[in-house]
């Protein structure tokens, strides 16, 4: 028997432990990248084996935060895929402008890069004051960091380039202060943002919104979980609401394919039908 077979068993046991003890279900994550994250977490936390991680997560409840942070943090950037934000600005926000109040759900917000990107878009289009952004993630550590809006200064150049390519009307540096190798975004950008813990694997609808952004989250899920989450999104959207997915994500081959029209293929923007 190869070591890898023994490891498979330890991974399955770890997933069971996390679910039984803490209610977090990673069984429906795509296994290959989950395994890579779990191995990295094992190395970072100094555990001798995945089995040792399982014991620690059982014996030491405070360790859970670190585990969730290690298993769920996608790396993002502001205005990632700038054409998507350009399309949101040019095509979607003018439609949302007709609503008296705009509600947006950023699902899987991680460190908040896209939350601030969205806030800046709304601000520049004169819609921020009537908007509410719900930014959710299952990872409390990431949510706290998202709420702080602090990023390494080494990212500023990439963020600025993306912002300009997304049709930015000013300079991105107008929105942050640079200090000690860090940039911190203006507090005012989050005055209409609610950061909240929400687990797409287990939690339900919590708001009715006109736009959902969930980018590069579904790629980590298997078919079953992806369909569950997409149904949740469908049920959270108003009639003719928008869903924006990651650049390599699609509604093709999913159970909600017929509930949406493609609004802009390259931006992965879909629009909910009327109920049939």
């Amino acid at each position: 028997m190869l070591d890898t077979d023994a490891e498979e068993l330890e991974i399955r046991d770890f997933i069971r432990t996390l679910k039984a003890r803490h209610g977090y279900d990673f069984a429906q994550y795509a296994p290959a990248s989950f395994k890579r994250r779990l191995r990295a977490l094992r190395v970072r936390s100094g555990a001798a084996s995945i089995a040792a991680l399982s014991r620690r997560v059982t014996d030491e409840p405070a360790f859970l935060r670190q585990v969730l942070a290690g298993l769920s943090v996608p790396v993002s950037e502001m205005f990632r895929d700038p054409w998507v934000f350009e399309t949101l600005r040019r095509e979607v926000l003018p439609i949302l402008a007709s609503y008296p109040r705009i509600h947006i759900w950023q699902a899987g917000c991680a460190h908040g890069e896209e939350v601030y990107s969205l806030a800046i878009l709304l601000q520049e289009e004169g819609l921020y004051d009537k908007s509410q952004i719900f930014a959710t993630d299952l990872n409390d550590v990431a949510l706290e960091e998202a709420a702080e809006g602090i990023y390494p200064a080494s990212n500023a150049r990439l963020f600025s380039e993306n912002y300009q390519r997304a049709g930015g009307r000013h300079s991105l540096s107008d929105y942050f202060h640079a200090r000690y190798e860090r940039i911190k975004f203006d507090e005012s950008l989050k005055r209409n943002v609610t950061f909240a813990s929400h687990n797409l694997s287990t939690d339900g609808v919590f708001a009715e919104v006109q736009l959902i952004l969930c980018r590069n989250v579904l790629i980590y899920f298997n078919d079953t979980l992806q369909n569950r989450v997409l149904q949740l999104f469908r049920d959270s959207l108003v009639h003719k609401g928008f869903l924006c997915l990651g650049s390599k994500e699609t509604l093709a081959h999913t159970t909600v394919e017929r509930d949406f029209d493609t609004f802009d293929q390259s931006a992965r923007l879909y629009r909910r039908h009327a109920l049939r």
Partner: peptide, 8 residues
């Protein structure tokens, strides 16, 4: 089957 990730 393929899967994709945007991890580090």
């Amino acid at each position: 089957r393929f899967s994709l990730s945007v991890d580090e």
